[in-house]
């Protein structure tokens, strides 16, 4: 049974149709990478999965249960089974690193202070940052912030981890550290991962399966090797980083006017 299933999901914001009938099954233990141009609606898919956005039409299922119609209170319990790494980390500025990582544990667990400190240290060690518990998020570099955010995302040992642009804004070396961490989490915690990115090197490295979103629908679904063999013009253009004729024409028109 798939962990997550999206059936014919449609979503519009104002007059902009972002998703036009998205169907996908995400299998347990697999890391699925969603690629696509900026603004294609990749992050919107992630937000549908954790109920931050509800579909206009269609349905979202988690382990066979339909979740797009459940209330906020039920979602609050269900979300403890998910971890979410935000694009900019979304660490709480007013809390220390330790308090950030401890937040979901304090909120949902009944642990003693000592136990919480131990779990926080374990999670930070897992991302290679133990010992910085008392620092504030503003004192960290971009890469460290993402790793702390990842430690927070896995604090409750989730079944599914969603990564929203995990390597965006990082240099290639730091980006590779994050990629290695995603692989490590999959290996050690056996989590189901969904990664949204337009970094193809990262997609090829961490993905068991790659799906490409274009024009509100999936236009490719296959292994990283199959992506390189795909002949679809939209996929080829994205993989090769080539602007469309339409984009080029619009640039020429603007240049001439």
């Amino acid at each position: 049974m798939p962990v997550i299933r999206l059936c014919d999901v449609h979503k519009s914001f104002g007059r902009l149709d972002v998703l036009k009938g998205v169907d996908v099954d995400l299998r347990p233990g697999e890391t699925t990478v969603v690629i696509g141009e900026s603004g294609a609606g990749k992050s919107v898919i992630l937000k549908h999965i954790v109920g931050l956005i509800r579909p206009d039409r269609g349905s979202v299922h988690f382990r066979g249960q339909r979740v797009d119609t459940i209330g906020e209170r039920e979602w609050a319990k269900l979300r403890t089974r998910f971890g979410f790494l935000f694009q900019l980390g979304a660490l709480f500025d007013s809390l220390t690193v330790g308090q950030n990582v401890a937040f979901p544990i304090v909120e949902h667990g009944t642990y003693s202070k000592g136990e919480i400190e131990k779990i926080v240290a374990d999670k930070l060690r897992m991302v290679g940052l133990d010992g910085i518990q008392s620092k504030r998020p503003v004192e960290l570099s971009g890469g460290q912030r993402k790793r702390v955010a990842l430690a927070r995302a896995i604090a409750l040992d989730p079944e599914v981890v969603l990564y929203d642009e995990p390597t965006t804004g990082l240099d290639p070396v730091r980006a590779d550290v994050i990629n290695e961490l995603i692989l490590k989490l999959k290996r050690e915690l056996r989590v189901t991962g969904i990664v949204v990115t337009h970094d193809l090197a990262s997609a090829r490295k961490v993905g068991d399966r790659i799906i490409m979103l274009h024009g509100g629908k999936f236009v490719f679904d296959g292994s990283p090797q199959a992506l390189d063999r795909c002949r679809d013009e939209r996929v080829r253009r994205f993989v090769e980083g080539r602007a469309s004729q339409e984009d080029l024409r619009s640039l020429q028109n603007r240049g001439g006017s």
Partner: peptide, 12 residues
């Protein structure tokens, strides 16, 4: 900066 969404996804 998506911190409000971060609260929500942590069930808070």
């Amino acid at each position: 900066t998506e911190q409000l969404d971060a609260y929500r996804v942590m069930g808070a």
